[in-house]
Design a protein around this nucleic acid. Structure first.
Lengths: 386, 386
DNA sequence: ACCATTAAGTCCACAATCTGCACATAATCC
DNA sequence: GGATTATGTGCAGATTGTGGACTTAATGGT
């Protein structure tokens, strides 16, 4: 049951710090007077709160505002990225990646290590990731940044910090946080599915939409639903497994135990067939190779069918295709979109728009780092000890 | 963007009233000392808050607690249903229904009016519903209850208070609240999909589970997902349209424009075939009628397939079958459950349990009334003018 | 150039609410 | 019947926000 705690003076202040900081983030540089107007707090209170935020180094004054109006010009306050930053981490089948993002969501550092991680020992991979992270953190700290948390994207479903299964890594039930052992408190470190974090990457670093289903085409197919700026995770955090939605009840067997799942038709293995890589596939598609075109068409139709079910169940504002689906978008758009709008029929005024992801392979690490930034802004008092 | 308001002294108090009242609701009768313990507030503060709640008539003292311990016995405080109540309304194809539920979730009044509402004029039906509601409200007020809000369940998707389409009523784009014109403020009246409200009915009046997918088998098939005690509605409030999830991509045409939707195999029309009613179908099933058994088996398998997709996308804690699926549960459970667990395969430790709804046809009105009660408890200061 | 006007930001007395401790109250235990 | 223990309330004090007066820094008209 909801055993929620009462509110005391300090939580009131904490909340108001978050409100002011959130408003500065959402509505760009603002003067104290404008902040008072927008938050409903008095100028006095806003002044005191802003002063604390200035001391903490999370905001900075932007110089006088020259808006041509009469009267004393205000001093606008904006988010400052010079002190607080967070760490985004990713383990994928082919690489490890790390980035540092500051409070303004500027990417400060970024590093990738290519590695064949198929069927590898968790301890080994996580050790590599730790040393990668440590070097990046040291560099960030040398630049005067304080890393206030981290999040890690993994290629598989995560339940309460436990990686249930990562089929292509060959991992099962791995307590990732314990093995990785970074020097963060539990509250400041999170592990989540690659698709969920990539969806958040699209949210904060992409096109600016606040409601969409991000479809992550990797070796497997996942999806992350963003509704009004936050990810829907379901009961155990396992929502969004688009790859195993039923497309053809009597179709070919899938590794999951089912038959005719989306992954069978549109997973990376199905798309590539005998082709070696995605860039090569794109080259063949551009050259008009019939086998490649047929595979894409089939994948697109299957994707359209799975998305039909997803739209009925999840009601996304739009659909963003990412991962390997991004470079293939020109060949997937028509069969998938056609299938989707035919099937949805009269159920919707207009079917959700199909769009290509605005950011590339970095989606997941950016989303991971952004998630922690989000938390700092949502509760600066806790994150900064104000 | 989240232009949220700052917190002032009065909102702090409002929040604490809600915390205390919520705790009393969730954890049964509690003494002031126990409340202080649980909320983290001091005994002094809790005393003052409880005193206000007593004055408002939403809680009552329960007599001394005799728990065999030493020391002064506390006086337990419990929710009191003698003053505040809410109204639940439903329009369905075959009937109108109304109920009054008090703060303790006790059903105080209940009335159903059978009517053939197929292809009827909205003004007419809503007029009938209004007079039904008015008589029930008058009766409730005569019993000393104050009706502090209402919610209405309708058989179709609702987007921002607009009933988009109710195929079996023959309605399209109806502004239900305006036509119904009950004397409630906008904040105190809500229209929602029958499946969503039935799901909430199951939550508050059913088995006690807090995470489940409620599947509502009516003329159409809808579903309401409850995660941690609240309904997931998607971007436009259209989530949970289980009836049009793809079961067989090349199956028979559905009235929605698609093919092989769940509704084609497991909608009421498909289940009944030439049989006249659900009770008659049940009788035939009990008698072993092969045609009836085959229809149910086919419906169960189709339901299992649609639920497979739903489980992958929505990650429900369990699955509750309601509406006409409730009486048919004995014949649906095996084919649906078998299909579901085979298909989910290794993706889950255990597939979500299939259960039958604990409440009957009243699910939607109970959920509707309960929703408004929930709001009163969530913000007693606003709802009661404290 | 100067002064009225306008708006931003700060100062200070005051108000709302919660805390912490003391204390009265009402049981049980021996 | 007195020691012990726990509940609930009263009162002073702390924290935080409010509201209006005041200072500051511009513009614009004379």
């Amino acid at each position: 049951m909801g055993s929620s705690r009462g509110v005391r003076h300090d939580s009131m202040r904490a909340r108001n710090l978050a409100v002011v900081l959130g408003e500065i983030r959402d509505a760009g540089p603002l003067t104290r007077a404008a902040l008072a107007e927008r938050t409903g707090l008095t100028k006095t209170t806003v002044s005191k709160l802003v002063s604390d935020l200035l001391d903490a180094g999370v905001v900075a004054e932007n110089g006088a505002v020259r808006d041509g109006e009469r009267g004393r010009p205000g001093v606008a306050v904006r988010l400052s990225g010079h002190r607080v930053a967070t760490l985004g981490l990713e383990i994928n089948v082919d690489y490890l990646a790390v980035c540092v993002v500051d409070l303004t969501l500027a990417v400060r550092l970024r590093r990738t290590k290519w590695a064949g991680n198929r069927d590898s020992r968790p301890e080994h991979i996580l050790g590599e990731l730790r040393s990668l992270a440590e070097s990046v953190v040291a560099e960030a700290e040398a630049a005067g940044l304080r890393i206030s948390g981290a999040a890690l994207a993994v290629p598989g479903p995560v339940e309460h910090g436990l990686l249930r299964t990562a089929p292509h890594l060959g991992w099962r039930d791995v307590r990732v946080a314990d093995l990785l052992d970074l020097p963060f408190k539990v509250d400041d470190f999170e592990v989540d599915n690659e698709a969920n974090l990539a969806a958040l990457g699209e949210l904060w670093f992409g096109s600016g939409a606040r409601d969409f289903l991000y479809v992550s085409g990797e070796i497997g197919i996942g999806a992350g639903l963003v509704v009004d700026g936050s990810v829907f995770r379901g009961t155990y955090g396992l929502a969004g497994e688009l790859g195993h939605v039923v497309v053809e009840p009597d179709g070919p067997a899938c590794r999951c135990g089912g038959r005719g799942c989306l992954e069978v038709y549109a997973g990376q293995d199905a798309l590539l067939g005998k082709v070696g890589s995605i860039p090569e596939l794109v080259a063949r598609l551009e050259a008009g190779d019939p086998a490649a075109l047929a595979a894409c068409d089939r994948a697109g139709r299957a994707l359209g069918l799975a998305l039909t079910s997803a739209v009925h169940l999840l009601d996304p504002g739009m659909i963003v295709l990412g991962g390997v689906f991004a470079p293939l978008f020109p060949w997937l758009e028509e069969p998938a979109g056609e299938t989707l709008s035919t099937r949805l029929g009269q159920m919707r005024r207009t079917p959700p728009r199909l769009a290509v992801s605005a950011i590339g392979a970095d989606a997941a690490i950016l989303g991971a780092a952004g998630l922690v930034i989000q938390r700092v802004v949502a509760d600066p008092a806790r994150a900064l000890g104000l």
